[in-house]
Simulated scan of single mutants.
Amino acid sequence: MDEPRLNGVKPRHAALAVLVATIWGVNFVAIELGLRDFPPLLFSGLRFLAAAVPALFLVGPPRVAWRWVVAVGLVLGVAKFGFVFSGMHAGMPAGLSSLVLQSQAVFTVVFAAVLLRERPRRTQLVGIGVASAGILVIALDYGVGSPLGAFLLVIAGAACWGLSNVITRHAKPPDALSFIVWVSAVAVLPLFALSLLIEGPSADLAALRGFDWSGAAALGFVAWVSTLLGFGLWGFLLREYDASTVAPFSLLVPVAGMLSAWVFLGEELTVLRCTAGLLVVAGMASTAIKPRDRVPVLT
C-alpha cells in the first residue's frame, strides 16, 4: 500500500521540509549571537570557509561555467551576506531580518523582467504591491528611534539575493548542492579582504583571539546546520518532488525566524509587525516567477 500523502507530499518528507524551514529561521538567531563575537564581514567569511572546506572534498565540480560560479559567489556570498550581516550588526533585529530578507522574491521578479525580459504576470505585480506594502509598514515601524541604515542594508541584501537568483536561473546548475559549495568557496577570500579593509586587522585579530564556545556554536550552526544540512535536505526534497511542491515550505522561514527571535532573544512581536509579516509572506507567495525553477533559499 502506498504511503499516505499530504497535498502530494509524504508525511515524513513534509516533516523534513518543515525542519529545514525551522533551521533556516533559527539561523537568524545564530547569526545574531555570532555577531556578538565577530565583526560582520569576518563572521560571514568564516561561515563560508567552514561550509566550503570539508564539503569541497565530498562534492564534484560545479558542472557550469566558472564565470557563473564566480558571479554568484560575489553577488550572493559576498554582497548579500555582507549587507545582511552588517545590517544585523548595525541593529536590525534577527526576526525582522528574516522577514525583510524575503523581499528577495520581489527583486527576483524585477531583475528577471529587466535582464531576462520575462514579463511579470498580473498576479506577480499584485504580489509585489502587497509585499512592498508590508515592507513599508516594517520600515515605518522600525524607523522610529532605530537606525534606518540597518534596515536599508538588509534590503540591499535582499536585492543582491534577487539578482543572484536570476544569475543562477540563467546558469542552470545541474547539481545545486555542489554549486553552492563552490559558490561558498569563492566568497571566502573577498570577504576576508573586505573585513581587513573595513573592519580592520586589529578588530579581526581581537575577535579570533577571543574565539570561545559561544562563537564556535554560532559559527557551526550557520555553516554546517543551516548551510550544509539544510541545503542538503532541501536538495533531497527537490529531487523527490517538483519545486512547485517544495517551495511553499520556504514561506515558513520568516515565521520560524520571528518566533525564535521572540523566544530566544526577547524580540517584540507587535500586532503591527505580525500584520506586516502576513503582507510580506502573502505577497511573496504570489511572486514566484516559475515554480519549477524556484531557487532554494540559502540563509
Rank of each mutant, 00 (worst) to 15 (best):
G266L: 04
A71E: 05
L219P: 05
S250H: 07
F249E: 02
G220Y: 04
E32A: 04
S97W: 08
V78I: 12
A55W: 03
L16A: 14
L205S: 11
P93Q: 08
F38P: 01
T168M: 06
V53R: 00
V225P: 07
H89F: 15
V106N: 09
A207M: 07
D37Y: 15
A288C: 13
F264C: 10
F43R: 00
S132C: 10
G230M: 09
G162S: 09
A276N: 06
G34K: 01
L35D: 08
F43E: 09
L115E: 00
L194G: 08
A65V: 03
S250G: 11
L41I: 12
L205V: 04
P93L: 11
R67N: 02
V186Y: 06
A206D: 05
S178P: 09
C274P: 08
V84E: 06
L251Y: 14
L96V: 06
W161A: 06
F83P: 05
V246S: 10
A133P: 01
L58K: 09
I155A: 04
P190Q: 11
S164A: 15
R239D: 14
V280N: 02
V59D: 07
I155Q: 02
A21Q: 09
A218T: 06
P93E: 04
V20L: 03
G143L: 09
L269E: 08
L233I: 14
L269I: 14
L140I: 13
D204H: 00
I289H: 12
A94P: 08
V166C: 08
I180K: 00
V222K: 04
I155E: 05
E32T: 07
S195K: 01
H89S: 15
T168P: 07
V126F: 09
A21C: 06
L46P: 06
V271H: 01
W24I: 09
L49R: 12
V263K: 03
V78T: 05
I167G: 00
L152G: 01
S146C: 10
V110T: 01
W262P: 14
T299V: 13
L252C: 00
A217I: 07
L208S: 05
G149Y: 12
L101E: 09
C274S: 14
V84W: 02
L42K: 04
K172G: 06
L58S: 02
L41A: 05
L191Q: 03
L259I: 15
L49D: 10
L233G: 10
A71I: 03
E199I: 06
A158D: 11
W234K: 00
P93F: 06
F151L: 10
L272A: 15
V137T: 08
K290R: 13
V280Q: 10
C274V: 15
V253M: 01
D37W: 06
A94I: 10
S132M: 11
R5E: 12
P40A: 08
P201G: 13
G134V: 04
T108W: 04
P40H: 07
V222E: 05
